[in-house]
Design a protein around this nucleic acid. Structure first.
Lengths: 356, 356
DNA sequence: CCAGCCTACCGAAACGATTCGACGGCGGTC
DNA sequence: GACCGCCGTCGAATCGTTTCGGTAGGCTGG
């Protein structure tokens, strides 16, 4: 301890064991024929001289593979992982990485600081990258990843040329939620959309929203517009969490002629809307119907949210499978996963204006 | 595209620019005197030949640093990140890593499979490691990390020789929560403890619990015992989330002479207990007082939990500072952060047995 | 006008492993 | 008994960069 001892290298082991460097290497890498006797001698020598195993860096340099896959998320971890849906995608990824096997380099972009993330990516070693995100201005990061020349997999992002992508059909999925409300008889419907490059908190008609670089909120808005028209009162959230949903819901419910139903673009937002309703003394679903998106399981709201289920963990696993295929040099094609409207306890027909 | 082109190396750039390899390197690493004219020529040559920048692997090999810090969590990501407190610690880490600068290699241990995690760690390149966890059987992982010979920082783990640690004084912190309930006049108090190597779901007196390898639940139980004795009815949770808390709370409330107060070892568990109370028609805090631990902010329970606040993000930041110090070759010492009992709306004096 | 210094650049030696081709010895086959 | 092939081992080249020590040349100061 103390003085930084020179690293014990494979050469010392070979010397100690009285074999050549290459033979010693064979013992550790497992590739190649080595007699059991020699192997044992080498292993013994390794413990004698205190060898810590092949240096991963040197090994990577020679093999041309680092065994690392970069996973790039679009915000700071605190924000990203507040939504259990994001966590489930990550968990799905991780579960397949274990098999590949690959390690996960987690890169976040706090404050949308893509520059810093891009710099770190440029100087990190990895064999492939997965990037998440409903569509941030991924420019710098994407450029860096492209420059690396490694296989790329995108998840829930805008379509990008020559990047394999896993996602869902956002538009019809969102339309299904809107259609469900319309069928129940609702006519005054509003919506809460995921964070995008639109000012949050203000209620404006949907057609005022561009959300150019944010395909997920945009496509889902289009889905809603397909059913309900593009004048739906809409508010953008600041994050995909309960609190942001509550704020957005409060804004929507504070207008003169409040909606009888609200479409939220994530379950976390929807749950926030449910809270906002409660704060105004409204009961869900009696006074207000709410739909979510994602299909997370949560335990504190006594009911089950009516929501558009999408398989989060499976999305992660699919993305990881794409990574594996690309690393193996196989062709990989976009994957579109199915979604399903799950009707729960948060939607009902609107209350009749007058009884009788 | 298609055929795997040979990597463009710094040598080609140097050749193209008509300078030596070493000069070209100087241009990219920034260290050393290069005239602006030459530098420009080299950069131009780089774009001409399509150089993608210095290979991080080769660079790491030569420099002896990879710029990566491994972060080892004790379970699968889905489980770990369900508790916002864990996420805040990770976020704290990440925020300082950005400054170091370092990238984060996230290593999970699904199903407590330390073997797989250890293997992956052994073959991954990193300069230091941080490991979390209330005290899993970290044996294999810890051995691997030790064998690597890199600086280690532990967070909320049992004390380990020669590993720098950041944590809190668990025992008095837990005692404070128990004392608060005692002062309010509660006598029938039960507790929910974090997952450990004890069978979950069964109610037994605290002195039946050993939790040998899990220091956090153990130390907190001791803290409670310091105030209330060691016969407190206790149940272990299966995870630190709302659902596990609800199950545990239900078990504690189902006994013949149910408690009037419950100490939970995390806020997520406490919130689950609140739900369990609601399901039995009990009001918190009128019929049941509940204390948590951590001090997370959540928005769906209308009140504020009485809890022991501990600074999660700061813990992460402190750990990262230790990493930075160790990487710089400086000495680093254990850090113990302060905690504070925050009295909220989930505790009150017990209801008088008979009114009047 | 010369000694000496600083700047800009270069050559070569690492960093620590993997892997390809070659080589000697051994057993099996005709 | 000669030949063929295989198994175990070795030498040497290589992965792509950084960095140390040295050298040429221009500039300054005496």
């Amino acid at each position: 301890m103390g003085g930084r001892a020179k690293r014990v290298t494979l050469r010392s082991v070979a010397q100690e064991a009285g074999v050549s460097l290459s033979t010693a290497s064979l013992v550790f890498s497992g590739a190649g024929a080595v007699s059991e006797a020699t192997a044992a001698r080498v292993r013994a020598a390794a413990t004698t001289v205190g060898y810590r195993g092949p240096d991963p860096v040197a090994s990577s340099l020679r093999r041309g593979r680092s065994g690392v896959v970069a996973v790039v998320v679009e915000d700071r971890l605190l924000t990203v992982f507040r939504d259990p849906y994001a966590v489930s995608r990550l968990d799905g990824l991780a579960s397949v990485f274990d098999e590949i096997p690959a390690s996960m380099l987690l890169v976040s972009q706090p404050d949308g600081n893509q520059g810093a993330a891009a710099t770190r990516l440029a100087s990190s070693a990895f064999d492939a990258a997965v990037f998440f995100g409903c569509g941030p201005d991924a420019g710098p990061v994407l450029d860096t990843l492209r420059a690396k020349g490694v296989p790329l997999v995108a998840m829930d992002t805008p379509v990008v040329d020559d990047v394999v992508r896993v996602g869902i059909d956002e538009r019809p999925a969102a339309a299904a939620a809107a259609a469900h409300l319309a069928e129940l008889g609702h006519t005054r419907i509003a919506q809460v959309v995921l964070p995008c490059d639109e000012p949050a908190g203000r209620v404006r008609p949907a057609h005022d929203y561009r959300a150019e670089r944010f395909s997920t909120p945009r496509d889902r808005m289009h889905g809603v517009a397909d059913v309900l028209g593009d004048a739906v009162p809409t508010v953008a959230a600041t994050a995909s969490d309960v609190d942001a949903g509550r704020v957005a819901g409060a804004a929507l419910l504070a207008v003169a002629d409040p909606p009888t139903a609200i479409v939220a673009q994530s379950d976390m937002l929807a749950l926030g809307v449910v809270l906002a309703a409660g704060e105004r003394g409204l009961d869900v679903p009696r006074d207000l119907s709410v739909t979510g998106f994602d299909g997370i399981t949560q335990s504190w709201w006594p009911g089950r949210l009516t929501t558009v289920e999408q398989p989060g963990a499976e999305k992660g696993r699919e993305a990881a499978h794409l990574v594996r295929a690309l690393l193996a040099g196989e062709a990989a094609h976009d994957v579109t996963l199915p979604t399903r409207l799950r009707v729960g306890d948060s939607t009902a027909p609107p209350r009749s204006p007058a009884p009788g």
